Amino acid sequence: MVNLSLIGCRKCRSLPPLQQLPKLRELYIEGMHEVQHLGDGLPFPSLEMLKFEDMPAWKEWSFSISIGVEESRSQFPCLRELSLRGCPNLITVSPLRLPSLQKLYLEECEEVVLKSIVGVTSLTSLEVVDIRGLSQLEEALVQSLVALESLVFEKCNQLMALWQNGGEVAQKNNLVRLQRLRVASCPQLVSFGEELHDEGLPCINLQELYIRDCENFVCFPKAGVPHMLRLCHHLKH
């Protein structure tokens, strides 16, 4: 079996023994309202797409690491796409080492889920929607986003800046491939960088910039916007 979907099993408290499916490539789990813990029996050596949706009771996603096993070992070495939607109580997550991840989508989750994602140097698309506790991207995550092309923030009510210091990010060539930046309905956002008068956007190849319904946004970088920018929207309602 290479594809598996489990949808609307509201009374199930655990998953079947999926570790018996080493060739599984796509796994979609939705509406398992009684599941609280996941992790035993993983990793999946062939999994490429993993999606969770509407998991209100899910609290813990953990992986046991045996003594002598390298910390850099990935639970999902081939995973290209990861999506979590409607997992508001997921507060305990073991570090997720995802060396092949290209697309990450998080909606209605705690910031701890985003913090658990490490070593995503292949990530090209990151979209975060309604992430509680997120005030800015952590420096360790930003440093790994060397391949990122699209970055989207929506409905992140505590977001105040996108990163700490745009100048430092630029010097380290982080976000150098970013082409699309979209920020919508983030009412506490003040500026791109944590420093109000950041020197400039670190995204030298940015082609599309979209800001909407961010009523406290007050400051563009001193150096303006990248010269390659084709579309720029700054809307307030």
Rank of each mutant, 00 (worst) to 15 (best):
I65P: 02
Q19M: 07
M1E: 02
E194V: 00
L209D: 05
M49A: 12
L82N: 04
S46D: 14
N174E: 12
E108L: 14
E34S: 15
D54C: 08
K59I: 05
V152F: 00
S74K: 15
V2P: 03
R132V: 09
H233M: 08
A140C: 02
E208D: 12
R73T: 15
Q188H: 09
A223N: 14
S64I: 08
L47N: 02
E110H: 10
L229I: 13
I29L: 15
V112D: 15
G86D: 08
E110K: 11
S135Y: 09
E127I: 05
V218C: 08
E195L: 04
L42T: 10
D213I: 07
F63Y: 14
Q143L: 04
A161K: 05
L145G: 07
Y210Q: 05
E199F: 07
G8F: 01
P56R: 10
E81A: 11
K59M: 12
L235C: 03
F153G: 06
L148Q: 07
P16N: 10
P95N: 01
C232D: 00
V35I: 15
R25F: 14
E110M: 09
L196I: 03
C109L: 12
S5P: 02
V112W: 06
E71P: 06
V118Q: 13
R180M: 12
M55L: 10
E107R: 12
E208T: 10
Q179A: 15
G39W: 01
L181G: 13
L42K: 07
